[in-house]
């Protein structure tokens, strides 16, 4: 059975295409790389000391570590790139994110408290930035990751302008 589609259109602007490489790098560094490394170490140790365990340990490692690690690193960036998007509308800022669990968040500009732009060391290599729009509630912070530097500056400026233009009740 296929259910109804969510009654929201996606945000207008996609994030920068380079974000895919950034996400891939992140995946290799933080998740897939360590997982593959531990699988390799495990199999090497097994081959050296318990060769008898290999027949069942090798498939197990492949299913539990190797395939998920490869799948994550190869599929996640593309999935994310299809979802991640942002838009600053008349009254609200709208962002979509996630690769497995999709998240769409809408915060009215009148409730915006701060606009933070962050560039991590890895992001800087790809010329990317993350813009976080904060509200008074931690559950209402809109985070837009993987913007090009120029887009980030523009976005921060536009949200700042709009927040100033719209009489705020930032509470």
């Amino acid at each position: 059975m296929t259910g109804q589609q969510i009654g929201l259109r996606p945000p207008r602007h996609r994030v920068d295409p380079r974000a895919r490489r950034w996400w891939a790098a992140q995946a290799w560094l933080a998740v897939s790389g360590p997982a593959l490394l531990s699988a390799a170490v495990l199999l090497a140790l097994s081959a050296l000391f318990f060769p008898g365990a290999l027949p069942w340990l090798a498939p197990l490692t492949a299913v539990v570590l190797v395939l998920p690690a490869l799948g994550y690193a190869l599929a996640m960036p593309a999935l994310r790139y299809r979802v991640h998007a942002w838009e600053v509308g008349e009254a609200a800022v709208y962002a979509a994110s996630g690769w497995f669990r999709h998240k769409r968040r809408i915060a009215p500009l009148s409730r915006v408290q701060t606009v933070d732009t962050v560039r991590g060391p890895l992001q800087r290599r790809y010329g990317l930035a993350t813009v976080t729009v904060t509200t008074a509630s931690t559950a209402g912070d809109v985070k837009i990751a993987g913007l090009s530097d120029a887009d980030a500056a523009l976005l921060a400026e536009r949200i700042g302008d709009a927040a100033r233009r719209i009489p705020g009740d930032a509470e």
Binding site: M1, T2, G3, Q4, Q5, I6, L8, G98, F100, R101, H102, K103, R104, R105, I106, A107, P108, R111, T135, A136, S137, A139, G140, V142
Partner: peptide, 18 residues
């Protein structure tokens, strides 16, 4: 209410809920 978030997973998308 300051902001709204809509979250779904492949399973909930198939079921048509959010």
């Amino acid at each position: 209410v300051l902001a709204w978030t809509f979250t779904d997973t492949p399973f909930s998308r198939r079921a048509g809920v959010v």
